[in-house]
């Protein structure tokens, strides 16, 4: 079946404008990071790696990047057991008040980010935990947790329950069944979920902004603070670090589970 020409034209006009809209900032940031001039300009004033040499020596940027990595690691380490267990429980067991539990576990998405961030700031402030980095990891974990639960429960729902029964029938006790049958069965969900958690935690801006002080800024907050003063190409070079992380994450996600799973209807 060939589509009529007018349909193709309309469709492709939209798709190409969206592609440009989606990619323009990324491409421009990458381009700007290689400029040899001082101000960011178009057309570029020549190629150089001098801004990369400059950020290689900027210890505060590296420290901020390491802090972001640390918070993202904490977030992922908490999310994997919490989200996996919850996802399996939701998909495999008949639970009383299942709808209410699901609604409750979706609160991180239904409460606006600024509300969640302010609330967690007050809670951590009351507990005198502000000024440390690990509460940032916990907070970012809480606000993105539904991603992890959803990824695992989608995997668990497609896992044939007969497999576990077969294992039990062969004499495997409950824990062995869980470790050797259930967990490998939901592994695609665990992988895609934890990847999402890590990369979103690495980029998280607003909740970081609310929970950090000047001594423990994470990289997105550092960039935000700098672009409000003066725009120099070294920030573009730092931003390329984020672009590289995103490319790596997309590549991994595609290789491990395939990007196409996001297209499936349940």
């Amino acid at each position: 079946m060939t589509a009529p020409r007018s349909k193709s034209i309309v469709l492709w006009t939209f798709v190409i404008s969206v592609l440009v809209l989606l990619s323009a900032p990324t491409i421009v940031v990458i381009g700007a990071s290689f400029t040899s001039g001082n101000m960011i300009a178009f057309p570029p004033e020549g190629l150089s790696l001098k801004w990369y040499a400059k950020i290689a020596q900027a210890t505060e940027l590296w420290d901020a990047f390491l802090r972001s990595l640390y918070a993202a690691a904490i977030c992922t380490i908490i999310a994997i057991p919490a989200g996996t267990l919850a996802g399996i429980a939701l998909a495999k067991y008949p639970i009383r008040f299942a709808t209410s539990v699901q609604m409750y576990l979706l609160l991180p998405f239904t409460i606006p980010l600024i509300g969640s961030g302010i609330g967690l700031m007050l809670v951590f402030g009351e507990a005198r935990l502000l000024g440390q980095l690990w509460p940032v990891g916990v907070a970012v974990c809480v606000i993105n947790l539904p991603f992890m639960i959803w990824a695992v429960s989608a995997s668990a729902a497609s896992l044939d329950p007969d497999l576990e029964l077969a294992a039990a029938n062969c004499g495997a006790p409950p824990l062995s069944t869980f470790i050797h049958v259930t967990i490998p069965g939901v592994m695609p969900g665990i992988i895609s979920g934890s990847l999402l958690m890590f990369i979103l935690a690495l980029n998280e801006f607003l909740v970081s902004l609310l929970l950090v002080d000047a001594r423990i800024v994470t990289l997105p907050v550092q960039i935000y603070n700098s672009i409000r003063s003066i725009i120099t190409p070294d920030l573009a070079a730092v931003s390329v670090v984020f672009v590289a992380c995103a490319v790596a994450a997309v590549f991994l996600l595609d290789r491990l589970v395939g990007l196409e799973i996001f297209l499936k209807s349940k």
Partner: peptide, 21 residues
Amino acid sequence: LTALFLPFFIGQVVRAYGWLI
């Protein structure tokens, strides 16, 4: 799909910075 996920994973601040440029 890739064009979709890349900006999604890059984060708001960097994207806004791109628009500033």
